[in-house]
Design a protein around this nucleic acid. Structure first.
Lengths: 143, 143
DNA sequence: TATTATTGCATAGCTTGCTATTCAAGTGTA
DNA sequence: TACACTTGAATAGCAAGCTATGCAATAATA
């Protein structure tokens, strides 16, 4: 029995993810943000003044991971936290001006990375690839 | 302008990779190994008694990452290192009996994870999916 | 109302990845 | 042969992910 890593979905998925992350990292480094902050920023650009719990519901990472990322974002001046009048355990998370201003450049970086990475696929192939990924994700999650 | 993460290849790729890793982690934990050791073991099962440099040429991680993984594997009794008569800077890396014995179970775990994860795709879709991933990987690497 | 259970976050400690740097051993050359 | 260059690994230090645990505030209940 043999195991060929190039025929292992998990191996390819992991490899691909590291390449994507590295690429995005290079693109957004000049903006002063890092890859792990990206999903958080995406949500906060849509709506800030929310609790950690709200954010958590929209981002698929563990609570502890999010808490640590938020700490680094506060340290880096990307977010601020204020008291939550409704619940003293939670705080409200707000973007700083600085972070708010990065939105369009960040969107653009991400889109550049995505389209560059997928340029080896034709348009219909890209759509199919995305569809496969969404199916695989929800398949694993619901198993 | 808006950015929908479900339409972002990078987002999906990252998410999918974390799900795969978590799944594999659960499957191989009983064997006493962890996901980062998997690629190293795969190579060493094919051929051990090699240098770190040899391994590095076959695994797509940075040298420092591999060095750290090897240290943990030595700590965990999965590998041993012996002097390299040909070059005093390098050492030869050998699997322990324990690690050698894990091979078939580990292959099986990985294959189970892969086929479970891809079960939402039909056979031709799976092949296409793998093909897309290989193309995307080599596209990014060569850009 | 006092106690218990739940909930929202924080913290500890680990792995896996990265970049950058250091260092000793080997190689090549003036 | 001495000096500089290169190369194989190790180390430092950080990010981002995880599990497990702790803790204070809130909610539910006896």
């Amino acid at each position: 029995m043999d195991f060929e890593k190039e025929n292992s979905a998990g191996y390819l998925v992991n490899h691909m993810a590291r390449l994507f992350a590295k690429e995005l990292q290079h693109h957004i480094a000049p903006l002063g943000i890092v890859v792990g902050q990206f999903p958080v920023l995406l949500e906060l650009w849509l709506k800030d003044g929310v609790t950690q719990k709200d954010l958590l519901a929209r981002i698929d990472v563990e609570q502890a991971t999010l808490a640590n990322t938020l700490n680094r974002m506060e340290r880096d001046g990307l977010i601020k936290r204020t008291k939550n009048p409704a619940d003293a355990r939670a705080q409200l998370i707000w973007l700083t001006e600085k972070a708010a201003a990065l939105r369009n450049s960040a969107y653009e970086s991400a889109q550049n990375v995505n389209s560059q990475a997928l340029q080896v696929l034709t348009e219909p192939e890209r759509a199919q690839f995305m569809d496969y990924m969404r199916r695989v994700i929800s398949g694993i999650r619901s198993s």
